[in-house]
Structures are given as C-alpha cells and as structure tokens.
Design a protein around this nucleic acid. Sequence first.
DNA 1: ATAATAGAGCTAAACGTTTTACTTAAAAGA
DNA 2: TCTTTTAAGTAAAACGTTTAGCTCTATTAT
Lengths: 343, 343
Amino acid sequence: MSTIKDVAKYAGVSIATVSKYLNGGNVLDKNEKHINEAIEVLDYKVNLMARGLKTNKTMTVGILIPSFVNIFFTTIVSNIENILLQKGYSTIICDYREDEELEQKKLEFLIKKNVDGIIMVPYGNISKQIQDIIDQETPVVLLDRNINNLNCDVVLTDNINGSYDAVEQLIKRGHKRIGIICGPENIYTSQERLKGYHRVHEDYSIPIDKDLIKYGDYQTESGHQKLIELLNLKDPPTAVFVTNYEMTLGAIISINENNINIPEELSIIGYDNIQMAQIVQPPLSIVTQPMQEIGETAAKTILQRLRGDMTKFPAIYRLKSDVLIKKSVKNIDIQQKNDSSNI
Amino acid sequence: MSTIKDVAKYAGVSIATVSKYLNGGNVLDKNEKHINEAIEVLDYKVNLMARGLKTNKTMTVGILIPSFVNIFFTTIVSNIENILLQKGYSTIICDYREDEELEQKKLEFLIKKNVDGIIMVPYGNISKQIQDIIDQETPVVLLDRNINNLNCDVVLTDNINGSYDAVEQLIKRGHKRIGIICGPENIYTSQERLKGYHRVHEDYSIPIDKDLIKYGDYQTESGHQKLIELLNLKDPPTAVFVTNYEMTLGAIISINENNINIPEELSIIGYDNIQMAQIVQPPLSIVTQPMQEIGETAAKTILQRLRGDMTKFPAIYRLKSDVLIKKSVKNIDIQQKNDSSNI
DNA sequence: ATAATAGAGCTAAACGTTTTACTTAAAAGA
DNA sequence: TCTTTTAAGTAAAACGTTTAGCTCTATTAT
C-alpha cells in the first residue's frame, strides 16, 4: 500500500503539498498534474485511520433501530444511508431487537466506535445516556419517537393527526363503536396514536367505551390476540383501527383464521407498509407514513449538525401521515338505519 | 478525552505496560489494580483510530446486500451483525438497490473504508473486483449466490433440491402442467431453481411445455405480470411455483385482483418469508430457507478467515431448504380422473 | 554462591496523516 | 528600483496507539 509519502516523492513535492491538494487546497498546475499522475500510478488511497487520528473525525454516523426485520425502519435506514454516503459518511447500523438492555449496549458500542453522530429510534429509558452524548458534542437525531425533557433534534410523524384522520373516516361512515389496538402504554408513538383516537371521539361527541381500547406490544402476536378479544366482547366493535404494521399483520391473521368477512362483518384500518395492504383481499385501508421524507430529514439534520450548524437547536420535524381508505371500510350509515327500524 | 498516557501516569506505570495489559498481557497484581482504577477514574476509552493505524486493522466487516427492504437479506444481516458484534467486530452495511453500478461503487467504498473482511451477495459482473480484493488478503464470503471460477468462500442454499422438492410435491398431487416463474436468467439462484424444476420433470418423465416457464426479474411487479401471462395461456397450468418472495407477493396480488380461487382453480407454492404465508388465505405453501443458519455460517466463516485460518479454502456451504405444503395446493388426482371420464 | 532463566517493565520508534509556523518566489505598489 | 503583499511550498511536530528490544529484578538450576 502506497502512502502520501510515496506520492510526494513521485510527484517531486513535499508531503504537505500533497495533503493540501488532497484536502482542496491550491497548488500549481504542474504540481497538480504530477500529483494526480502519482496517485494514479501508485494507486494511492488515503488511510482513513491516520486521517481520523489527526482530525479526530471518523466520518461515520451510527444508526440504531429497534429491528432489522421491520420494513418501516429499514426503508428509512436505506434512505439515510444513501444520502450520507453521497456526503462521504459511512454508517454503522445496529438493531437492538426491541431489547432495552441491548439498546444501551449497542449505543455504547457506537460511542466506542467514535461515530461523529448518531441517528436512533429510542426505546427504553435511555435519555440520560443520550444527554451525555450530546453534552460531549456528538450530535444525535431521534427518529420516530420523542423523549420529553431532552434537548435533541427529532424527526417525527404526526401520529396524533394520522390517527385522528383515520378514525374520523370511520366515524364519517357511520361507525360509533370503533376498537383500537394500541402499542405499549409507555411508547411515544403509541400514546400519540391513542390521543388522536380520543380527540376525534371528543370532537364528534361520541362516548368512548374503555373495553374497545386494547393495548398490544407492537408485535404480530399481540395484534392476533387483541383482535380476537375485541370480537369476543358482548358488544363488539363495527370497526377496528390497528396502530402499527406488525399488529395489523396479526389482526389480518386472526381475521383469516376466523373467516371474518371484511368489510361486511368488520371494517378495518391498519398501519404502514403498502405491500401488505395490496395482497390482502379486500384491499386494506391504511395510515401511511412518509418514510422517504423521514429518512431525508434525519440525514439532512445530522449533516447540518456535523457541519457545526446549530441553528434552531433542538429542531422538531413533525411530518404528516396519509390515510388511504380502501374497500376494507364499510359505510354503515344505511345499514344502521335499517337496524334501528328493525328493533 | 483521556489517553493511555493519562492512564499510565495515574497508575504510575509506563504506557507500554498499560498497552500490554489492555491487550491481554500479564502485569503485577498491584499494577493491574492501579490501571483499572485509572481507567475507571479517567473514563478511559481506547482510541480505535490510533490502534487501527498501528495494527492496520479496523475490526470492521463490510456487508453488501441487494436491498435493505428485502426481509430475506435483512434477517440474515441481523444474525451476522449480532455474532460479529460479540467478537468485537462492527459492520458497515450497504445495499446497492439491485443496481450493478451501485454494487461496484459500494464495494469500492467498503474497501476504501479499510474493512478487514467482506460478506456480500454478488449481483452484477463483479468477479474481477472480488478476486482483486481476495488477492490483497482481504477475506470475502459470498452469500446466496455463487460465482464460477472464483476462489471464494460461499454460503448457499440448496436451491436445486429446494425447487425439486417443491415441484415434486405438486407432481405427487397429480399436477402435470406446472408453471414456474423464475428470476432473471443470469442470476445464480434463478438458474438453480429452474434446474430443480427440470430435474424433477425428467425424473418423473413429465414433458416440459416451454410456455409454462416464465422469466421475471425477482421484483414484485414481474410476479404480478407473469402470473397473468400463465393464466392467459390457451392451456393454463394447474399449479404455479414462484421462485422468490417479491414475485410471490406479486403473484398473490394478481390472484386477488382476478378473484382466482386457491386452490380450486390454481395451486401455488411460493418462496421465503413466513409472515406473508400466514396472512394469505388459504395458507400459502412455501419453500423456506434457513436464514438463521445462513447468517451464522457466513459470520463464522469470515471470523475464521480473519483469524488467519485458511483451512479448506475455498469453502462451500450448501444449506438445505424446507418445503412447507399448506392448503394452497390441491390434490387433483381424483378430479383429473373425473375430467378424463367426462371427455 | 554464582550463573542462567524467566517475567515484567520501560524506552523509543513507528504507523500515515494534518497542520502550524516558517521560507521562498512572484506580483503589486510606491 | 525598492519595498510590500500575496501565494505556494516545506519542515517538523503532533495525534494515540503498538511493539521490538532492552533493562531490571526475582527465581531457579548448577
């Protein structure tokens, strides 16, 4: 492996001149030519370890997500990675398999690796560690979930209004008993999505039956389980809103297992992931999040901070989600009138 | 940030002694105590750049996959990452979005990052680059796809027999006109899966109708498209074998769009990903690959090579896949007899 | 008692860069 | 023409480690 020394010797200039040129400095035209030729001939590649040692930069961003097998997060990561790469940054991507302890360990690991910045989806009780990292001048961008009382840039989806809009669509189609399968009570997105459910009920003056609110754990199996619980209620809901992708999958499995006729017997709105929405019959209504935009915003924000630009810190980006209503939702206004006349 | 110098001073020993201790050397008990105390008090963390500069190791493995949004590959990556992390290696994971040019660029990027080894799923015409990398003593492990005439460790699934077994199940249930949706003709797994299809037909002395062989591109849309083409044949197949996850998804979409009754009108066997197999009604028969084992094997192999152990190079690991037959496959032996008696 | 050996510690050089402070040459100004 | 300014080049130190080769002390063998 040839070094900058070899290049300098070959080009007939000093090491400092080569280094200067390599880092965008001005050199005489003839020297530029010689240096370029030397680099070409010697197949010179800068040693990033040596450079990093001097500059105290690794040109690396750590990314920490709950799971590699969650298409929502990997889509975002793919976008982030591509943007950062273009700017010369590489990424170390870790998942913590939805494990609080592993989350801490992997975060430590990233710090030990001297990453210049971190983009992460927080999960457990990790705000102190994050604060320490920020205090040591390493920028952090939070993804998807906010942490209160933490001065940190964060990119969120507007979960409250996404949820609000979805449930509103159900209400407008005559549904009054609407089940919701939430995530864990202590998770940010879960709280927000439930809040949207509450608000829209309030705004339309529809009382909420506590039995219709089920708390899952954002995993497939809990979606499966909680949907059955909803169906087994004495007075079951006419529609169900499932608040993440995995649980939606679980709910669909339940529906298939029990041969429930969608939307005749039950209307359903799910969350995320358009692919699944397409293969389910009838087409599934969903709340979609702007995954590309989330990735872009996170990447741009960390790049800004890495540049040393701390304007508007801490920045909160709250991106809009979209509600796509398909055939999995039934308009029951008419039927309900029939029902009441039958009584 | 405190350095090894600070630790040495605090502990009252030389830098060399601290370094030796840090790297597993023996020191006097009292010195060990002092050094540990110093590390604790000063919150010392070894500077990996400096270490890397000296040792010429980055303790980093590059991983290159076709797509971050492909659950087959991300599952494998997750397994690899976790094993490598335990051994102190970090990973730089890249995807090339099924783009030959990007594949080359990202591979170069990994090399520029001085990774100690590479695990990758090859795609385009990249054997020369890989050979160069191996020649420069950087170990490479190929995943999922083999490249002929390249001396390189490789971890494969036994695609031929996986495909053979799947189609055999169809034949045993009386199917004689079996459609196959293959991947691109130039891709290794695609060729192997088609080979299995050919072999089993040969072994059961069933002639192959060329019209029943369709070449897709391993993307969702081609599965969608090719299934329709199969259905529109004058003499359509009674069963279809779809040879990867995305195309299976596409095929399911077609089936739903056209309200085709599975398995009454068509039997189907898909590929990979158990989650989807569960949400489809009736339950989908699939060929599953041992993703955990693939990841483990790849990780262990690269670790072995990084250790300098070159026994049995180049090693070829050929792991078995499994065929799960569910209700999406119909036994048409009886019906066929009826059919013929009706003629 | 002395020589040989083993074990631990130490000094100093090296890894490949960047960067500061300085030198030199050329261009501009008086 | 002589001085000042500007631009480019250079020597050398520094970044934080590892490691070869040496010294010193304590133990073992003779």
